[in-house]
Design a protein around this nucleic acid. Structure first.
Lengths: 339, 339
DNA sequence: CTGTTAGCGCGTTCAC
DNA sequence: GTGAACGCGCTAACAG
């Protein structure tokens, strides 16, 4: 039956070939349990369907059942590559395993595009919506039909209790423990501490927790940072500048706790410039497990953001009824050679 | 009309409120040109639709019209982050501008999953399919209904003439011209030349053209490479090793032409190790404009893969009838500081 | 037991 | 301007 099939094979075609009504064919093919149809009828229908290469028209099916086996994945930015990609990949994999499909939509963080995206999704009768935030934060969600199932991914919303987040508190804790276990005590510098991020409008839930975890672990060991360096953004250039400053002002520093890998990337450059070796002279640990973490020499030990696992979790939660609350996904340690 | 809307607003609701038949309402709302309905009827219908917040049910619409305003984006790997993301982003943007939406599917390059993905797309009556290959190559495409509109993105298929590719030939040419213009003649080393990639099963169309462009430009200026170093993969580690080798064996080399940015990344590390400055001692030019190109110090001058523009082009081509052939998207030079 | 008919879901389109 | 059929599959009610 390959080739240039002119028109779709419909349920009626299958029923006709099987010598039964389309109602019978429908019941058999959808596998209803209470069927009172003969085994022979089952056989004939299945055979006819296979022979014709029948595939139900999902649009017609959706019309009756209100189910499309389609999930909308609405994110603010796909642009921010490194974050979006793992989330999407995980969601895609989990969706496929469940026989579902992903509708990808982007809002750029603009409320009106958010509304458009939601409408586009609802027009297509999606089974549920995943709102993904590239930078974790409180997500603003416009009005939505009450029945729509919603999961917040890497963000939270007071309107929707179901959310998936990285376990940053534990992650922050772990980073400190790694340095502590390696013998570092009073010579640890914190790179990238962003006081602005900790309070105020742009407060990022997950970053706040990361820092809280770090401070809790430091307190537990009765330690203080040799210095805490702040900046507005977390790009390599800032890590470079802050590390330079630390090296100049705090010659006794033995370890750098960088709040993300890109800051650490800049730190490597600053250390190379003055000929300090990693980890011989200075240990470094960071967060995220960016692609670059593995490219650096020596490899950067980092607390990974489990994006893929989070993406998977979001789909699983969406598809399993009667779940709610905040689901934390643990952040694995990726040990390389920088400590 | 906000809040927990119980049931959908249907066309019948609109027609009832407007005091007309649903047929009239349909014609007016779809904006048919030959309508012989009164201006007053138009007004009433539009008003009723606005008042009720009516949105057509796309599933029902699709049933009649066979149009879903949905495009399937089927890629082999979303995993290969750096390549997939720009393509998706561009496609997403162009789709949105055209009032369409993207269905994202992944095949992992496995034929059976490819079939599944295509069926999932066809079940949902997509208006067209974009096949995206992360590593450009001849794409195997299973049987497909004849009418389905298909665009190959970053790859080709003998079965489907419509494809979007980066203009690698010109890009390769340009890279050489950049070095030539900077005064480099006989001291240029080629890093990453993969002879295996040039021939045989894994021949990559676009890489082949990149290399062809490079050789054409060299020939044009009657130049020869000081050395051509091959490797199997193009990761930083390989760039590091090859560059080390070049520095040891060819001390007269003045420029490195790296076949991608990650190789160049490794080259930077090898140069730093022996204290050679970029671009003071050695110039570097590469391809792709990876994220890392901007992180390196000094910034890496590179010939960019125009992923986003390619993604946009693929959607535009899909949506515009009567187009075919190979569409080349030019590769812009991103000038930084490595030459 | 084994199966059928009729009508629905929603929007589009044709004959009148 | 309208009624009715249609696209396709699901389901309640009904018949042998």
């Amino acid at each position: 039956m390959a080739g240039l099939s002119k028109k779709r094979v419909t349920l009626a075609d299958v029923a006709r070939l099987a010598g039964l009504s389309s109602a019978a064919a429908s019941m058999i093919l959808t596998g209803r349990p209470d069927t009172r149809l003969s085994a022979e009828a089952h056989r004939r229908v299945h055979e006819a369907a296979a022979q014709l290469g029948y595939r139900p028209n999902l649009a017609a099916q959706a019309l009756r059942t209100d189910k499309t086996r389609t999930i909308a994945f609405i994110s603010d930015y796909v642009a921010t590559t490194r974050y979006a990609n793992g989330l999407i990949r995980g969601a895609l994999a989990a969706a496929q395993e469940a026989g579902h499909v992903l509708l990808l939509l982007e809002t750029g963080g603009e409320p009106d595009r958010e509304v458009q995206a939601i409408e586009a999704a609802l027009d297509r009768q999606v089974d549920g919506i995943i709102f993904a935030a590239m930078r974790a934060r409180e997500i603003f969600v416009p009005t939505l039909p009450a029945a729509t199932r919603v999961v917040m991914l890497n963000g939270t919303s007071s309107r929707f209790p179901l959310s998936v987040l990285p376990d940053e508190l534990t992650g922050g804790h772990t980073a400190v423990e790694l340095l502590y276990a390696a013998g570092h005590r009073d010579g640890i510098a914190l790179i990238g501490h962003n006081r602005i991020a900790e309070q105020g409008l742009f407060r990022s839930d997950t970053v706040g927790r990361r820092i809280a975890g770090i401070h809790a672990a430091m307190a537990k060991h009765k330690l203080r940072f040799a210095t805490e360096e702040s900046c507005w953004e977390w790009e390599p250039q800032h890590g470079f500048e802050l590390t330079r400053k630390v090296l100049a002002q705090h010659p006794d520093v033995t370890a750098l706790l960088c709040l993300n890998d890109r800051l650490a990337f800049g730190a490597y450059q600053a250390l190379a410039e003055v000929g300090r070796a990693v980890p011989g002279d200075i240990s470094i640990v960071a967060f995220d497990n960016d692609e670059i973490a593995g490219y650096l020499r020596p490899g950067l030990t980092t607390i990974a953001l489990p994006h893929e696992e989070m993406g998977r979790a979001s789909v699983r939660l969406l598809l399993s009824p009667d779940t709610s609350g905040e689901h934390l996904v643990s952040m694995p340690v990726v040990v390389r050679a920088s400590i």
